[in-house]
C-alpha cells in the first residue's frame, strides 16, 4: 500500500493510505489519532473538522494523498505544553459539550472562526459560522457562549 507523509500536530508522520483513504481515516486508523470523529457520510456534521495548512477542513472530504506534504492540526494538537487552548477551556467553562462527540469538530471550527473573524464575535456571526457543524445534545446555546468567550480569551 502506498505511503503518505505529512506533518500532524508538529510531528512528521508517514502511514499507509490507498487511493481512496480519506484524511479522517488516515488520522484515525493510520495514526490512531481518534479525537477526530466521523458522524456522517455526506460532509454535513462537521465532527471531523481539522486544520490543513491553517484552515478548517472536513477531514472526510479530502483524501489522505491530497494532504501529502501539508501541515495538519487535530484536536490532539491544540493544547500546548500541557496547557489547554483557550477555546478548549471555554467549552469546559461554559458547558459547551454534553456527549462530546461533535466537540472536537466544534472546537476546531471555532478556532478557525476566530482566526478569520477576530475576537469579538456576536451571536448571529457565531451561529451563521456554525452552519457546517451539527450538535444534537446542546441546542447550541452553550456552544455559542463558549465560542464567544473562547474568542475573547484567545486575544
Amino acid at each position: 500500500m502506498p505511503k503518505v507523509s505529512m506533518t500532524v500536530n508538529g510531528n512528521a508522520v508517514t502511514a499507509d493510505a490507498d487511493a481512496r483513504t480519506l484524511l479522517v481515516q488516515y488520522l484515525r486508523e493510520g495514526l490512531r489519532l481518534t479525537g477526530t470523529h466521523v458522524g456522517c457520510d455526506t460532509s454535513q456534521c462537521g465532527a471531523c473538522v481539522v486544520h490543513v495548512d491553517g484552515k478548517a477542513v472536513k477531514a472526510c472530504t479530502m483524501f489522505a494523498w491530497e494532504a501529502e506534504g501539508k501541515t495538519v492540526l487535530t484536536i490532539e494538537g491544540l493544547a500546548q505544553n500541557g496547557k489547554l487552548h483557550p477555546m478548549q477551556e471555554a467549552f469546559r467553562e461554559n458547558h459547551g459539550l454534553q456527549c462530546g462527540f461533535c466537540t472536537p469538530g466544534m472546537i476546531m471550527t471555532a478556532v478557525d472562526m476566530v482566526n478569520r473573524k477576530g475576537h469579538d464575535l456576536d451571536d448571529p456571526t457565531i451561529r451563521h459560522e456554525l452552519e457546517g457543524n451539527i450538535c444534537r445534545c446542546t441546542g447550541y446555546h452553550n456552544i455559542v457562549k463558549s465560542i464567544a468567550a473562547g474568542a475573547k480569551a484567545m486575544a
Binding site: 481518534t34 484536536i75 489547554l84 469546559r92 462530546g100 472546537i107
Partner: peptide, 18 residues
C-alpha cells in the same frame, strides 16, 4: 464544571469506534 470534559475537549474520549 464537568469532570468528564477534559478527555472530550482534548480528543481523548474513548468511543466504540476508537
Amino acid at each position: 464544571r464537568r469532570k468528564e470534559d477534559f478527555r472530550f475537549i482534548t480528543g481523548k474520549g474513548q468511543y466504540t469506534d476508537d
